[in-house]
Amino acid sequence: MKLARKLLLIDRRIIFLLVLAGAVIPILFPIGLAVQVSPPVRAVFQRVEALRPGQTLLLSFDYGPSDGPELDPMADAILRHCHKRGVKVVGLSLFPLGGVDMAFARLRQLATELGARDGEDWVNLGYKDGGQAAMKAMGDNLALVFPVDANGVPVGEIPLMRAVRNYNDVGLAVSLATSVLGEWWINLVNAQFGVDVAVGTTAVSAPKYYAFMEAKQAVGVIGGMKGASEYEELVAEAYPDLAGLSRTATVGMDVQSIVHLVILFFILFGNAMFLATRRTRQEA
């Protein structure tokens, strides 16, 4: 029992090191574990698939760099999907700390990978303060809220924006959200303007969005890196020519699986040692 007591007092930094090893090894040597697609992610994919070529998808980049590992792969997969379907993408951001730059990074990545054209296939309208006030005003006229795009070009001069006046001209709104912004897209934009809304969110926020989906307020939910890997899988299945492009969430899920095993081991091990020492104390 001395050993059990010693192990219970193990320095937490040793556990950190083991978690680090569990994370680094699969990054260096990917395993390629299979991805199982869940219904909430499939629902988003099918809704995008149902958009007609030329229709518009509003993609709100409501996150900053700290949420990039989870939400960047979602953005990439959705943008690739839209481009293959011929769906136009209007990007914007209502999240102050980095949203507009996340939008630029992802949209330019799409331009580099698949040759999508700024102003014709996609546009980045930039960031706007105000959250709910901006969302409500966009219901009347997008150009009132975003008179120019993120490059300073008046929206009237952007070919893609000539067909998009307000939410009536949007086939689907997708919010890639941290914080409360995803909820606002649902309980304000969907509820008051009747726009179909899907949310891609960080794992921390994901549970609350399933309630919105169950109540049919959201067409689907992409939750965390797992959800992103599922969307990557669906896009690769449907469009084999895109399968060769980077799939960072799928690679990331290898790491998730290994690290979860390490954490599970320590939870079970810690409890087993605790129970063993407690029994000894009771006997004494």
Binding site: A203, M225, Q256
Partner: peptide, 14 residues
């Protein structure tokens, strides 16, 4: 989900 989210951040940085 929170654990998964935090590990995702670690994966991103690493």
């Amino acid at each position: 989900y929170t654990v998964m989210g935090r590990i995702s951040l670690l994966i991103g940085r690493l």
